[in-house]
Each structure stands twice: as structure tokens, then as C-alpha cells.
Write a protein that binds this DNA or RNA. Structure first.
Length: 873
RNA sequence: GCCGAGGUGGCGAAAUUGGCAAACGCACUAGCCUUAGGAGCUAGCGCCGCAAGGCUUGUGGGUUCGAGUCCCACCCUCGGCACCA
């Protein structure tokens, strides 16, 4: 074997002059990332270098590890730096796990359905099918530059019939389980996107996508009963290993409140008003009631309302208002009394008036409230305006019985007053006592609403439902699910894919699509023309990845064996912005499939970590601001290794960072130094070897002390390993820089064989190899090239993760800080094992310290082993 | 209003969790090298001060031998939710 780096005695390496010359020539060439990255990319692609055999991956030796990143939406602009940031951070984690001995499956795909693609297609006048194909191709090219572990054989595209067939199949499973239902409801409608939106897609009353104010529309829509899972979605948050921030966001979104359902009889009718309240303890203070304008009771007792005209006018006006107007912060509350209608407070049997007012929402609780002006600020304001009495029933001064006169609602703790037999009870305790007293029901309500999945758009999977007038009636045709064997319901190619704003999808005008046969009675029937929400596509894609190549991929969405082996996902990395959308929906769908016996787990992602945001000059990147960083440009200039490392170096991965076009040069310089270190290492090993031999022959002394570099190396292995484990890539990179600097600074052996008498200092080839291994997850290309140039067989990426020598981290000598009254006065070098008495002796002797003591007697001396001594005077 | 994250040099940021504040890098300054440099190398670089020395982690207080880190009060920035009864 012509390995010029043959191992020799004393841990040194020798090689022939001829070999050395060839190597030096080769390596003197400048670092050319484009060249080496192309070389390895080609090779890796050809070999499908990172693909794992999903079936064969065995738990016995290499454990399967499913490393998932949020799949991108392939935009026309191409890969965003934010994408590169997320994917690199995730890939480094995958590479780290791989080197630690796991079989890592790292798939990628495209979330290509949805309004964003469609809106862009409309703007450009290009059909989304053509556009997405183009974008996807460009994305693939860019993604391949990054040097990630992607398994391209398992790529997924949500717009392909073989994928959305199963999205539709999932809809059918939910339908069969009674979890998908159609209902007429007042829903959020975006006039610009011309479609309904899910609750989660309305931000401050505006459309999440285009920022247009949403309006309310009464439409018949498909919903998923996610509220049925509210309890479980909330409870499981207690044990899943997710970023705490994300969990809190989900908890807030699910928004559980504990309270009671109470019934108020409506005088002279058969009706009762049911209210939900979190404050049943204040029931004696309820002086009126409020119904949401949409509340059914208004219609039921119409005949008895004396001012029906006024009431109807108010209801109509309320209906016209959009969400924003209705929830306007500073807005004054309005309402109308239902004259002639009285309700009875079940606690004290008093008759109280009933109002309709739009500050009460139909969509929460029961759509009706009991108003307690003394203890609720909103009720207080309303009562003040309409001269309604406020009766204080919670007193903070109990038992003094002198309650301060209220200037606003008192919402704090206290004891009950004016509440009959409950007087004197602490209010928390009174809650359930009063509930019981009036035969109410303790219950919990959630902020979470059912997931509205219908979209009146073109670019999505058609909802697999057929409406049959014969099975139902002409007025209300029956909804018949498309049989599973007839899936997919293919999305037809439609020339005019623009939404009309009629409340119907563009598919409604495609006769060949709409007219079909009823699967049940075979009579003529019409298809559902809405498509489903993009978030349904992405709610299950991670289940599909492992199974795309399986023989049964056409027969089942995910194969049992593969799913068992690879899921749930071991690590999921993605943006915090999906905390309540995608992540909640994915959990919900997984839970449903679990309950249907299709999955063995109910939580899809064992571990989730949210990465931070990349900004430019402190601002979020956006086209309108013109501060978008194009990763292509920088990859071309500096190479992917540099771009990867620079992004990770910016700041903690979980917090993001600020991109600077200038700062990237620092990392590029670092990689250049790494590159140029190789020839230096060679010449140095040769010189050191010769000098070492001379010196050894002369003196006969052997090495005693460890070179500084060895200590730094051990410290670095520990630090980098810990940092990778915690996604602290920025400090891991700084440690790699420190390690290289340490190599560069390590003095050569001088002519006498040693830099210092008796202390040989040598850098070994193995040290540099360890450095390359540590660097490999961050910069996969350059490390592989240098690994090869070192004459090594195999790949740096197949090396086991280095272990460190715990003993070497502990230095023999250490710096001891000397303090007087907590202020540092000197730092001295001492033996690491220094004891307390010796330390005290040293500090008292110290010249500088004595100056500050000024002859005063020390009151106390504190010794912290391994760190400092402090004298208190 | 509620929930969350944060405030450290000119800039991005570190700080083994209570023990040398500013690691690592960018920018900057000086010198070397070079025909040249938006290349490389060496050194310097929180603030005040000629120096000795003093001061410094949003503000004010506290605990401690010792606080960027813990406690109390307040100010500011960013993100999310928001008439949720």
C-alpha cells in the first residue's frame, strides 16, 4: 500500500520524499469550493450516498433515526435563506446522529398545493401546474447544492395524484369516523383570495396570506371535529419533548377555561337560556343577560318581543360588520334590550332584563352570558352605558364588611357578600358550591374551534364527496363519500383557474368534473367542487415519506412495517410560525389515525425544536423592503460549506440571527485556513520528525508533557459534542476556530529537538483527522476532500464521532484568581490540585494583594477550588 | 390588556449556571509583505485617564465574600393572542 502517511514509532508519521512532493503540489492549490463541491456532489448523487435501506435498517446495530425538517413550499423566487438556515441546522443534526451510529433517514419534499402558489400563478398568468413544476425543479437544483443527507428517492410532492389520493383517503377516514361534517356557519371569507379561511388563518381580522380584511359569510362548509381532541391535544403537551415556547403557544391556542353551565329560565315561556361562565361564584351579582345577535332564542320568542323592529335592525347591522369592526378594541359596546322578555336569576329568583349585544360572540361558550357588572369589566362598561345596576358580591375586605365603592369591575379574589347562604365563603370555593346549588354543570370550554377545511379554490385536492338528489332530496342532496377504490378524485386541468368570488370553486364551472354518478344509487349526481385546505396536505406528509417506494405504496398511504420501524419522527425542526397551524393539525390527524387503529402512536413528533428567524439589518426579509438575501449568489461565491457555516455561526440556532454580507468572509477565511493547514501539517510533520530523531538520539529523553493542543482537542470534542446535542451550533463553530488556531499556534520543534527543555510538542496526524471529523457535519464537502487528500480510505462521514479523554481536559496547571473584597487583584498560575491552605498562603504572600490589604487583618478567606481565593477585609 | 422572548463593546454575539464580563467572528487602527489589493501575516481594539488607577451587562433598590446570572419595583424592544364570559 502506497500510503505515504505510514505510521511510525512514537506516534510520528513518515513518508517518502516523492509522495510528499506530489501531495504538496496538489495541496498548494488554492481552496476552490466550487470545484470540490461539484466533485463530491456528483459522486454522492451517483452513489445515492446518503440513502438508507429503510427495510433493512436494523435496530440491532445502527438505530433508525428519522430526522425531519418542515418541507418547503416551492416558491418562484427559489430557496429562501430562511429555508437554507432551517435545512442546514436540521442536516447538521442528522449528520451528527449518523456519525454517532444511527441510520439516519432525512427526507425532503414539496408542499406545493395552496393559495400562495395559486395567487402567484394568477398574478403571472401561468397555470399553477406548469409553474409548480418549474419551481420544484429549481428548488431541487438548489437543495442539492446544500450538501444535505436528503434521500431523493423518497421525495414527496403533495400535488401528485399518488400523494393526494391519500389526502382524500384521510378525509374519508375522518368522515367515516364522524369527524368530518358539513355545516352552515358564519365563516371568515377573504374577498381578495375569494375563499373561506380557517380560524387559524385569520390574523387580527385579516387574511394570513394577503392581508385583506376578512368578512363574514354564511356558507355550507366542511369541518373537521378537532375540538373533540382538544383535551388530548392539551394533555399530551405535558409529556412531549418540544420547545417550551411552542407548547405554550399551543396551550394558549387551545385555550381551556374551567367553568360552569348554568340555566336561566325565561319568564312566561318554555325556554331557558344556558350560559357558560368561569365565575359561577358571582351568580348573585348577575343583573342582566346578553345574547349574541345570532342566538336562536331571539327567533323563538319573537312574538313576545315588544321592540322586535329595533332588535332585528340591530341584528342585521351586527351581521354586516366584519370581525375587525366587531372586535375593535376602543369600540364602545352597543346592544338592544329585548323588551317584554325577562329571565330569572336561578340563585336569587330575581327577574332580570335580557339584551342582544355584539360583544357576546356566538362562537364561544353558549353564545349567551350572564352579566355581572361588578366583577367583569366588559359588563361594567355595558351596564354603565345602559344604566343597569351593579351588585357587588365579592368583597376583598371580608370580614370587615365594608367594601370599597367600585370605580371599575373588581375581578380579584375575595369572600362572598350579598349571596344569601354563601356569604363569607371564599370565592374560589363558592364557585362549585353555587353551581351545585342551582343544578348547574361543571365543564370546560376551549378556545379551539373546529377546523374549517373547505376552500373555494382550484389548486388543491378535491374533497371526495358526491351530492345525490335522489338519495337525499332536491332541496338537500345527500352527501355521499366517494368509495376508496375510486380515489383519487383527480384535479382536472382547468384553463380558467381564477376564483370567481361567487362562493364556489372554479371547479364548479367544469361540467365534466361536476357531473358524475352517485356511488350509492348510480343515478346522476354532482361532485363537491371545493378543495381541501393545504394544511391537510402537510398534516400527514411525514407518514408518507418512508413508504413512497414500497411495493404497496399504491395500496396504502403508509406501510405498516416501515411505519413501525421509522415513526414517530425522532427529531423535527421547523419554524415557530407553525406552532399553532401545521403542528396542531399534524398532531390531530395523527391522533385520529391512532384512534382508528392505523397508527401505534398518538404523537407524531417525539422531539420538536423551533429554529429562529434570519433577519437582515434587524428586519424581517421581504421583497417589498428589498432586503432579501439570495443564497445562490453566496453559494456561488463562497461555496455551500461557507454558507452553511456562516448561517450557523450567526447566533444560537433556536434564536436566529442577522445576516451580514460582510460577516460571511470570516467563515470563508476559516475554511481557507483549514485548507492551507494540510501542506503545512505535512512539512511540519517531516521537520518535527527529523528534529525529533536528532534530539532523541542526543538526549535519550522521552516526551513528558502533553502538548497544549492535545488539551484543547479534548476540550473541543467535549464542547462541540455538547453543543451539537443542544443545537448550539454557533458556539460549536467558535470552538472549531479555537481548535484550528491552537494547531496553528503550536510551535514547531526547534533544532534542539524541543521548544522547551524536556517538553516535546508535536501535532499528530490523528489530531487533525479528529478536527476534520468534528468539522464534517458543518462543512461536508471540504472535510471529505481533505480526508481523501490525507490518503485515507473511505469517507470522513463514515467515521465514528470522536471520544474525548476526560483526563486531558483537566490541565495540570491552572490560573488561580486572587481577589480582595470580590475584586480581582491578580491571577497566578498554580498546580491544578492546589489545596485550600496552600492557596491561602499564596494569596497572603502575593505582592499586589498585600498592597490592597494595606496591613488590615483579613476577616475571612474564601477558597473556591479550581477557581479563586477571595480575602474579605 | 394577557401570554412569551429579549435588552451585554461600533456590529453579530460568548460567559461551564453565583466566581477573571466581552470567548469566537465582523468592522476598525498600526506595521510587515506585495507592482498592486476588497489577498495574506503580526499586533492592538469596552469606556475614562499621560499614567497609577477607576468605571462598565436597560434603570433603581436588595440578597451575597462575590451578581450579566438570584429577589423586588420600573422602563424599553420584538413576537403571539386579544370583547373567549
Amino acid at each position: 500500500m502506497a500510503d505515504p502517511w505510514r505510521f511510525s514509532c512514537q506516534g510520528l508519521f513518515v513518508w517518502t520524499e516523492r509522495d510528499l512532493k506530489a501531495r504538496i503540489e496538489l495541496n498548494m492549490a488554492q481552496y476552490n469550493p466550487q470545484k470540490i463541491e461539484l466533485k463530491w456532489r456528483k459522486k454522492w448523487e451517483k452513489e445515492k450516498r446518503w440513502n438508507v435501506n429503510l427495510k433493512r435498517a436494523s435496530a440491532s446495530r445502527r438505530k433508525p433515526y428519522y430526522n425531519l425538517m418542515m418541507f418547503p413550499y416551492p416558491s418562484a423566487e427559489g430557496l429562501h435563506v430562511g429555508n437554507v438556515y432551517a435545512f442546514t441546522g436540521s442536516d447538521i443534526h442528522g449528520r451528527f446522529r449518523r456519525m454517532q451510529g444511527n441510520d439516519v433517514f432525512e427526507p425532503i419534499g414539496y408542499d406545493a398545493f395552496g393559495i400562495h402558489s395559486e395567487n402567484f400563478a394568477i398574478k403571472k398568468g401561468i397555470h399553477p401546474r406548469i409553474l409548480i413544476k418549474r419551481n420544484t425543479k429549481n428548488f431541487e437544483r438548489q437543495l442539492k447544492l446544500l450538501g444535505s443527507l436528503f434521500d431523493w428517492d423518497h421525495a414527496v410532492d403533495t400535488t401528485q395524484p399518488e400523494y393526494y389520493k391519500w389526502t382524500q383517503w384521510i378525509f374519508l377516514q375522518l368522515y367515516k369516523a364522524g369527524l368530518a361534517y358539513r355545516a352552515k356557519a358564519s365563516v371568515d371569507w377573504c374577498p381578495s383570495c375569494k375563499t373561506v379561511l380557517a380560524d387559524e388563518q385569520v390574523i387580527n381580522g385579516k387574511c394570513e396570506r394577503c392581508g385583506t380584511e376578512v368578512i363574514q359569510k354564511e356558507l355550507e362548509q366542511w369541518f373537521f371535529r378537532i375540538t373533540k381532541y382538544a383535551g388530548k391535544l392539551l394533555k399530551n403537551l405535558d409529556w412531549i419533548d418540544w420547545s417550551e415556547r411552542t407548547k405554550i403557544a399551543q396551550r394558549n391556542w387551545i385555550g381551556k377555561s374551567e367553568g360552569a353551565l348554568l340555566n336561566f329560565k325565561v319568564q312566561d315561556t318554555k325556554y331557558t337560556i344556558e350560559v357558560f361562565t368561569t365565575r359561577p361564584d358571582t351568580l348573585f351579582g348577575a343583573t342582566y343577560m346578553v345574547l349574541a345577535p345570532e342566538h336562536a332564542l331571539v327567533d323563538q320568542v319573537k312574538d313576545q318581543i315588544e321592540n322586535l323592529d329595533e332588535v332585528e335592525k340591530y341584528r342585521k347591522a351586527a351581521k354586516k360588520k366584519n370581525e375587525l369592526e366587531r372586535t375593535e378594541l376602543a369600540k364602545e359596546k352597543t346592544g338592544v334590550e329585548l323588551k317584554g322578555i325577562k329571565a330569572v336569576n336561578p340563585a336569587n329568583k330575581e327577574e332580570i332584563p335580557v339584551y342582544v349585544a355584539d360583544y357576546v360572540l356566538a362562537s364561544y361558550g353558549t353564545g349567551a352570558i350572564m352579566a355581572v357588572p361588578a366583577h367583569d369589566q366588559r359588563d361594567w362598561e355595558f351596564a354603565k352605558k345602559y344604566n343597569l345596576p351593579a351588585v357587588q358580591v365579592i368583597c376583598q375586605n371580608y370580614p370587615e364588611k365594608i367594601c370599597p365603592v367600585l370605580k371599575e369591575a373588581y375581578v380579584g379574589l375575595g369572600h362572598l357578600v350579598g349571596s344569601g347562604q354563601f356569604d363569607g365563603t371564599p370565592n374560589e370555593k363558592a364557585k362549585w358550591a353555587i353551581t351545585k346549588f342551582v343544578k348547574g354543570k361543571k365543564t370546560a370550554k376551549y378556545h379551539l374551534r373546529d377546523w374549517l377545511i373547505s376552500r373555494q379554490r382550484y389548486w388543491g385536492p378535491p374533497i371526495p364527496i358526491v351530492y345525490c338528489a335522489k338519495c337525499g332530496s332536491a332541496d338537500s342532496p345527500q352527501a355521499i363519500p366517494v368509495p376508496e377504490k375510486d380515489l383519487p378524485v383527480e384535479l382536472p386541468y382547468v384553463k380558467n383557474f381564477r376564483p370567481e368570488g361567487t362562493g364556489k370553486s372554479p371547479l364548479a364551472s367544469v361540467k365534466s368534473f361536476v357531473h358524475t354518478k352517485c356511488p350509492k344509487c348510480k343515478g346522476p349526481a354532482e361532485r363537491e367542487t371545493d378543495v381541501s385546505d393545504t394544511f391537510l396536505d402537510s398534516a400527514w406528509y411525514f407518514l408518507r415519506y418512508p413508504s413512497t417506494r414500497s411495493a404497496r405504496s399504491g395500496k396504502a398511504p403508509f406501510e405498516k412495517e416501515l411505519t413501525k420501524k421509522w415513526l414517530p419522527v425522532d427529531m423535527y425542526i421547523g419554524g415557530q410560525e407553525h406552532a399553532v397551524l401545521h403542528l396542531l393539525y399534524a398532531r390531530f390527524i395523527t391522533m385520529v389515525l391512532h384512534d382508528l387503529g392505523l397508527l401505534e402512536f398518538e404523537e407524531p413528533f417525539k422531539k420538536f425544536r423551533a429554529h429562529g428567524l434570519i433577519t437582515k439589518e434587524g428586519a424581517k426579509m421581504s421583497k417589498s423592503k428589498g432586503n432579501v438575501v439570495n443564497p445562490d449568489e453566496f453559494i456561488e461565491k463562497y461555496g455551500a460549506d461557507t454558507v452553511r457555516m456562516y448561517l450557523m455561526f450567526l447566533g444560537p440556532f433556536t434564536e436566529g440571527g442577522d445576516w451580514s454580507d460582510k460577516g460571511i468572509i470570516g467563515v470563508y477565511r476559516f475554511l481557507n485556513r483549514v485548507w492551507e493547514y494540510l501542506p503545512e501539517l505535512r512539512s511540519r510533520l517531516l521537520n518535527d520528525k527529523k528534529r525529533f530523531e536528532n534530539w532523541k538520539n542526543d538526549s535519550g529523553v522521552s516526551f513528558r508533557t502533553e502538548p497544549e493542543t492535545k488539551i484543547v482537542l479534548s476540550q473541543s470534542i467535549k464542547k462541540i459534542t455538547d453543543d451539537l446535542e443542544n443545537l448550539k451550533y454557533n458556539t460549536a463553530i467558535s470552538q472549531l476556530m479555537i481548535l484550528l488556531n491552537s494547531f496553528l499556534k503550536e510551535p514547531e520543534i526547534d533544532q534542539h529537538g524541543s521548544r522547551e527543555l524536556g517538553g516535546g510538542k508535536l501535532i499528530e496526524r490523528a489530531d487533525f483527522e479528529k478536527f476534520l471529523i468534528l468539522l464534517a457535519p458543518f462543512a461536508p464537502y471540504i472535510t471529505e476532500e481533505l480526508w481523501e487528500q490525507l490518503g485515507n480510505k473511505g469517507s470522513v462521514h463514515d467515521q465514528p464521532w470522536p471520544k474525548y479523554d476526560a483526563k486531558k481536559i483537566q490541565q495540570e496547571r491552572m490560573k488561580l484568581v486572587l481577589q480582595v473584597n470580590g475584586k480581582v487583584r491578580d491571577v497566578i498560575e498554580v498546580d491544578a490540585a492546589l489545596g485550600e491552605s496552600e492557596a491561602k498562603r499564596l494569596i497572603l504572600q502575593n505582592e499586589k494583594v498585600q498592597k490592597y490589604l494595606a496591613g488590615k487583618e483579613p476577616k475571612k478567606i474564601i477558597f473556591v477550588p479550581g477557581r479563586l481565593v477571595n480575602i474579605v477585609v
